[in-house]
Amino acid sequence: MSKELEHSFVKLLEENQNIVHKVCRLYTNNQQAHNDLFQEITIQLWKAYPKFRGDSKFSTWMYRVGLNTAITLYRKSKRRVNTQEFDMVQFKIKSEPYDDTEEQQLKLMYQAVHQLNDIEKALVFLYLEDKDYREISETLGISEVNARVKMNRIKTKLKTILNP
C-alpha cells in the first residue's frame, strides 16, 4: 500500500486514538491486554482503511471497527486474567474535587460496568460517548427499539450490581 495512504491513516489514528483507548479501557483489565487490543484494533482499522470512503466521519467508522474487534475478532487469552484494579489506577485519572460519596459512587460504577457482558459494554460505551439510538442500533445490527429496551435493562442491572 502506498506511503501516502499509510501517512494519512497514521495521522488520522493519531488524532483519534482516544476512541481506541476507550474501547480498550472497557474491554481489558490490565496494561498488557490494553496494549494487545489496541494493537489488534489498529491492524483491523488499517486493513479496512482502503475501503473507507469518507461518507461517514473517520471517528464514526472507528467506533464500529473498534467494537467489532473487541467483541468478535479479538482472542482474549486466559493468561491475561488479572485482578488489578484497573480504572482510576491505570490512567492516574485526576478527578475534579468531587465530594467523597460521588467519587466512591463513580468508582463503583466503573467496576459495575466492567462486570457487564461484551454486548452490554458496547451499548454502555456508545451511550457514554453520547451516540444516539440510531447509531447504536446500526453499529450493533439490532433495531432501535431493541437497543432502547436493552439499555433500560442495563440501567436496572447496574442498579442491582450497585445496590445488591
Partner: peptide, 13 residues
C-alpha cells in the same frame, strides 16, 4: 502507531 500497522493480526478470522 506506524510500527503497529506493520505487525500481523492475530484475529480469530
Amino acid at each position: 502507531i506506524y510500527k503497529m500497522i506493520l505487525k500481523k493480526s492475530s484475529s480469530i478470522v
